[in-house]
Design a binder for these strands. Structure first.
Lengths: 194, 194, 194, 194
DNA sequence: GATGAATGAGCTTTCATTCAT
DNA sequence: GATGAATGAAAGCTCATTCAT
């Protein structure tokens, strides 16, 4: 069970994103996802352990690379300030690129509990580590305040970005999210700069 | 229906906070809340329209005064910067003072359906207005950057405070939250200061 | 939960006997039992933990007194042989008196597994104890063979009675079961008699 | 369909016995039997009509010869009493020789639905005929009571043997079942003897 | 003949809400 | 006003069976 291959696996995950984005987390029944995916209810269980496994897999597949993509992309940047800019930009870009996914991850999936929330947190943990490294690098380079509290700074970055994105989603993704990257980056930088 | 009076109204809300904090949002059945409140299941419906109304009312009662208290207290402060400090401090103080409530508002109620969360957000609208006024005042006084984007700044303040509090709750309220007020305020101020 | 009182409790058990006797164990859905009992599906769960609890309770209520009734009735008999006659007769009488129940206990309930079968066995254990005492008494009184193996004799009595009843049920209770008590008793007595 | 040939037919039946003995009737899914037999799920249906047909065939194959073996072996015995002894002994021997099969026929298959159990009973009909003949022969030879009721005597023999074997299986086949043949035979003979 | 991926009907249990007392 | 017994809709998951390859 749970053999993660074949086109059906992806079909089902894509269907889940669409159904959750359209009908909401609590109205995303297995049968609705199956119908949207064009498979029988039982087929779901050939590819996923249970309903929660669909959601966890969705998150892993869709967000698993989220942080890694940012990490790889900022590696070539020279200063912590420039890395932060790229990170903010990519954060917004990735979510703006798939608005259904943004709805699902910013609003709907947060209604889940148990294992899924843990999974979400564990993926975000990598994000926090990345931010930590970035902040430390900035401090060591004398770019950022030497007495900056990493934990608070991290919470400021993540809290700000999350809040900006969530507001954008709640405003039905009507405006350009990426356009906020620069001003947000400027604000954060002013806060951190030595 | 929905007659908001009598001691039972408050009994039920207090019971709901305790039950949700203890058992979690998804295990907070109406019957459990009724039992904790010492009333019959049916009595709940003499004071509330339905289960969602309990949660909305809980939020209104508990957080409604939250913003007002802050507003009144900062009225006497002279500068926007000082007002911001007080706001941050009071935000943390009020949540640290009632940790059950903090668990409920920061973690549990966010598992509720999207509709409820929209109503929760509308309650926070007053908070956003307060922050708006504060930011504008700072800009007019030349204390804050004149080209500060109020929306982004607001999201930075709210996002940061929310993230700081949520992390504190997830760490089981083990450390002193109010102690973070000063450093958080310093960070925010650096970002906004002209 | 599982408050065993009120007329509904018995209504549901009686309905379960009728439904199982008529439709068989595997076609006795909770909803069918509820309908037959004239209550809503959910009402079942005010009186019983779960479906299995209905069946266990059915067995306890209906068969719990089975052995005790026999024990009380044979207490006044003088010889082991007479006690055996009464036991056989009452065994048959009690099952003939409620033919639906006989169908349920002889055929349908044996299709169950897990806890219910353990319960059935534990109730039968009392029967085995009663037979043991009866056999020992007969041996001590010199009426039964002194070298009679209690275990085998017990298995002969129980196996014979059970087989006779099961055959009667499978023949749709068409003939008089109690009429077999005397000849069965005579056969058993010949086997045991000193 | 249901072409009963090829080595796979037997493979599947043997697999079914092992799976049912190990996992129990309710955990013996077709896919589990197929896996144990080393064939694909679909292959099962080239050899059997449906799942019930596997179980009936299992019973026919395994128990069909059961009675014939006894019949052939007792043909050479002279008296009904001696024939009965041999029958009892062989009944026990055959089941003790294949304990998995004993578990399946004495315990697990009895959890099957009533319909399957009726078919199982029809397979035992030959056994009943054999016992009938044996009893009649004993009566005609003046060895058994002339007024012995064949039906009851048959039920006593079958019920006793079945109960003895079932108890042995439930005690996990720990003791020597065949050792009970003699004392059981002695008991039965005393009951029937003229 | 053999495969095994796909099917989809079917059922127990929970819990917000009602309403007769 | 207060009660709490009764309601009944709703949904995740299993598994015997099929059929295209």
């Amino acid at each position: 069970m749970g053999k993660k291959k074949g086109p059906k696996y992806n079909q089902i995950i894509e269907a889940a994103v669409r159904v959750i984005a359209k009908h909401g987390y609590h109205q995303a029944q297995v049968s609705k996802i199956a119908k949207e995916a064009g498979v029988a209810d039982g087929t779901i269980y050939l590819y996923f352990e249970n309903k929660e496994d669909i959601l966890i897999s969705l998150f892993e597949e869709k967000m698993g690379s989220f942080v890694e993509t940012i990490r790889e992309r900022i590696a070539s940047e020279k200063s912590a300030a420039e890395k932060l800019l790229i990170a903010v930009k990519m954060h917004f870009e990735q979510l703006q690129a798939d608005q259904n996914l943004a709805i699902v991850t910013q609003l709907e999936l947060r209604q889940s509990n148990t294992e899924l929330r843990l999974k979400i947190n564990s993926i975000f943990k990598n994000y926090l580590i990345l931010l930590d490294e970035l902040l430390t690098e900035g401090k060591e380079a004398g770019q950022f305040l030497s007495d900056l509290d990493n934990r608070l700074a991290r919470q400021m970055v993540f809290g700000t970005l999350d809040e900006v994105v969530t507001n954008w989603v709640m405003k039905e993704c009507k405006y350009d999210l990426v356009a906020s990257a620069d001003p947000v980056h400027r604000l954060l930088l002013r806060a951190f700069r030595a």
